[in-house]
Amino acid sequence: MKLDNPSMHLSPGNDKIKLTNIYSSNERSDMMKTFLSKMFTKKEKIQIEFCQNNLDRFTTDQTIAEYGKFLANPRIQYKEYECLSECKLCKETSYAKVNGQIMRGKDSHDLLDQLQEALK
């Protein structure tokens, strides 16, 4: 509860009055939460959809391990589908759907680099 009348403080030897507001502990707590939430805003999660056929075609043992590390990030929600009905694209290049938009790479490593950039 904020008091309507701020308290007045008079410093000895000084003829100026310093006005300060008195806040309840709940108000201070709320103000701190608001301040911290503005300073440390949570970033949105991203949703990634993969085509299993495309992964089988373009990933290697090395990139599978790198994808595993990347997908462990708590900001990522992902799902593998047997097919995403993008057959022409699937035959040509490595791709994924990120928040509903197709993202393609020259190879699976390039796609992973792009996915990491999208996360930033």
Rank of each mutant, 00 (worst) to 15 (best):
Y81C: 04
G105S: 04
L115S: 04
S85V: 11
D113W: 03
L112E: 00
K45Q: 10
Q114L: 07
Q62H: 12
A118F: 04
R57N: 08
K2L: 14
R104T: 06
S24P: 00
P74A: 15
I102D: 01
E92F: 08
M103L: 13
F40S: 05
S11T: 07
R75D: 07
D4Q: 09
K69T: 07
L19P: 01
F50M: 04
P74V: 11
M32H: 03
C87P: 03
C51L: 02
C83A: 02
K33N: 08
L10R: 05
T20R: 14
R75E: 09
P12K: 09
F58L: 03
K91E: 15
Q101H: 05
F40T: 03
L19M: 06
C51Q: 00
K88R: 15
T41L: 14
L112K: 00
S11H: 06
N73F: 04
A118C: 06
E49F: 11
V98S: 01
L119V: 00
I17T: 07
D4Y: 14
K88I: 15
K91D: 14
C51H: 00
E82D: 10
K88N: 15
D113V: 09
S7H: 13
N14P: 02
V98Q: 04
T59H: 03
R104L: 05
T63H: 02
C90S: 07
D107V: 04
Y23M: 07
S25H: 09
K97R: 08
F50H: 01
E80A: 09
T63I: 13
Y81E: 04
D113K: 09
A65D: 07
N99S: 05
L10D: 03
F50C: 05
P74I: 12
M39D: 00
S85A: 13
Q116I: 05
S11K: 06
F40N: 14
M39W: 05
S29Q: 08
L119Y: 02
L111N: 02
M8V: 11
Q101F: 06
K120A: 10
K18R: 07
K106Q: 13
S29I: 12
Q116G: 05
K42S: 15
L119G: 01
K88F: 13
H109R: 10
T93N: 12
R57C: 04
H109K: 15
Q47N: 09
P74Q: 12
T60E: 02
Y95Q: 00
K120L: 08
E66T: 02
T59G: 02
N73T: 03
N54Q: 03
